[in-house]
Design a binder for these strands. Sequence first.
DNA 1: ACCTGAACACCGTTCAAGT
DNA 2: ACCTGAACACCGTTCAAGT
Lengths: 182, 182
Amino acid sequence: MAAPATAPLTRDRIVSAALSLTKAAGEPPSMRTLAGELSVTPGALYRHVAGQADLVALMIDEVMEHVEMPDEATEPDPWRRIRAHVHSLTKTLDAYPGLDRLIAHHGDSSNAARVRQQWTMDQLRTAGLNRRDAGRAYGALDIYWLGSRQRTQRSVATFLFGLDRLLEGLRAHSRNSSATSG
Amino acid sequence: MAAPATAPLTRDRIVSAALSLTKAAGEPPSMRTLAGELSVTPGALYRHVAGQADLVALMIDEVMEHVEMPDEATEPDPWRRIRAHVHSLTKTLDAYPGLDRLIAHHGDSSNAARVRQQWTMDQLRTAGLNRRDAGRAYGALDIYWLGSRQRTQRSVATFLFGLDRLLEGLRAHSRNSSATSG
DNA sequence: ACCTGAACACCGTTCAAGT
DNA sequence: ACCTGAACACCGTTCAAGT
């Protein structure tokens, strides 16, 4: 599988190499290290990628595209769909240590991120939350999974315990507000 | 208030200047910038501080010492004490933009952090959680406030909404487990 | 069109040498 | 004892010059 002579430098090869190095080192490579891995000069990267920030965004896109969003057939309860989705986020990021910190720094304004947000808010509305509460609930869940990736990693048990408490609180809130208007 | 001639370089002056620059710039200064602000050469800093990581730890210590931990006289309900404490964390960090990210990266293994952890777990146990659940609940709260500081800042309303849902879920959990053993 | 080589303006850290 | 000056080994990014 050795590349014959010199494979053409493309955006995909750059992103792929960056992710591979991240996986191996536990943190994203510098532009210079990345260039070296691709047997190229640092300046060459800038013909295919606008800069480090752009590259980071592409890496995040690539990884986050594989997060699960179960449908009603697979999982009839919307709360369990949300739980599976958030759990999937952490499992996905476990494969690329250091990428979670990049997401925290850089944010994620990709299309995929907007799709995930819309999907989550749809589930929350299906579960009975009004539009304002669904927006806030999405924010709270986003805060929670992101926080779980920072600092010294917490145990999975702690993460799931808190996630279940948060979902339970949201469900109770949804019951109360629908009771008020019923 | 101009310093006469040359004030002696001390650890306190270094930490104080670093925090002041962080407040002004929205992000922590480099060692070189910090040295320049103190009218000194970068190497001089290393006589008083082990390095950048050490300095960051000292900055975190200094700031986090002012987080509120209300007592029973001020606030009789343990859940409200916890809520006030977590809210105080965010208010404290609002004064030093950029420091929250440092905490996420660096962690906080100071004595003050251990005191806060112990205090929070005491409140949770008072509120009825057993030791294991109190540990996990502390972890979940830690995840939540830390996550709220990352990326583009969420609104206060979203933060408080999620915090209240999480606390509600924890309270419900404590009621269920005490009912089981009662 | 694409890449190299070299430069610019930065980093954190160390340490002989000065005072 | 404390600080300076200079160096070492890095960064991200730009851009004339080569092919």
